[in-house]
Design a protein around this nucleic acid. Structure first.
Lengths: 166, 166
DNA sequence: AGCGATTTGTTCGGATGCTAACGAACTTCG
DNA sequence: CGAAGTTCGTTAGCATCCGAACAAATCGCT
């Protein structure tokens, strides 16, 4: 996502458009860079890790959550992953056909569906996730450990504000 | 995007899955929280600001970039906004029909299309953007000014690493 | 000048993800 | 019990966005 204009140039232009209006440029920069970083990171991970596996981003998240917490109910997967249950239905179908996980109706509650990994799914994740994490490390490599932890904290704070007001 | 499990619980589970493998949990936390924060922020802004206008997120970005830099070539809009030119074609069509901007073939280069705002488009943005910025301020309100600026810097650093390696 | 290579915006087909509506299963409470 | 309400996963319909292929325009090289 290349950007021909620097932030300073953009601010100058905005100031020209809105005159003396009291805008918060710092907040603007945070939000703008948040999306830029998230998109760039997702594209990077999709190309460097996921492309070879044929997994979509969401499919990988589903696989990851299931791998960590199995056996797990589908509604929990949707919660952890942050997408709708309708989306999950489709992705679970795909992953089941590919043989990475399987669904089973719950004995205790006929509405629920429990999801578990297949051996093939576990094999895949046990090699795929370390690779993934290695690239995550690369992504944050320009920040020293202290700043890395601060960054995670601040992102959590933003999530809390925006998720709280729903 | 509620998450029933804390990061610490997740780390514990992952450690159980991968044993003594040297994983970088800090990097994992940064990436995970990056997506969570970006999604939550986008949802928040779509509901609190954009829903009333009937604009999609992408449409708003296109409008904003055009507003700031008009007259502007379409390829520049795609660059600044970070989406494909195929996506841009459709969004530009919608915004042109709604009367917020207009396209004109370039005199100098017959392949290029220049985009300018209509008066209606400028009127919209001159009230919409201050509202938008006000919510951006809310989003970052839990961070003091110094940390806000550090956050923007760190996000920029991440973008640079991930965009550079394409 | 002329012809192949490149660039640009558009079109097309496909993938993805969401909301709303639904049926099935469970819970609540009279 | 049993009827009303709730919760769950699925389905259907819709909007969004992208990559690949394409036509038109321009550029570059001889």
């Amino acid at each position: 996502m290349p950007s021909p204009h620097t932030l300073a140039e953009t601010e100058e232009q905005v100031a020209g458009k809105l005159g003396a209006l009291p805008l918060d440029f710092e907040a603007m920069a945070v939000v703008s860079n948040l999306f830029r970083a998230a998109n760039a990171t997702r594209n990077y991970l999709e190309r460097s890790v996921l492309a070879a596996t044929g997994l979509s981003w969401t499919a990988f998240v589903v696989l990851w959550v299931t791998w960590i917490w199995e056996p797990i109910e589908t509604r929990q997967i949707a919660d952890e992953g942050g997408f709708s249950k309708a989306t999950l239905t489709g992705v679970l179908g795909t992953l089941e056909v590919k043989g990475y996980l399987k669904r089973e109706r719950s004995d205790k509650d006929g509405r629920l569906v429990n999801v578990t990994m297949t051996p093939a799914g576990r094999t895949l994740m046990s090699t795929l996730f370390p690779t993934f994490n290695d690239h995550e490390r690369t992504i944050t490599s320009s920040l020293d450990p202290k700043r890395r932890s601060e960054l995670a904290d601040m992102l959590r704070a933003i999530t809390q504000v925006t998720e709280g007001q729903r």
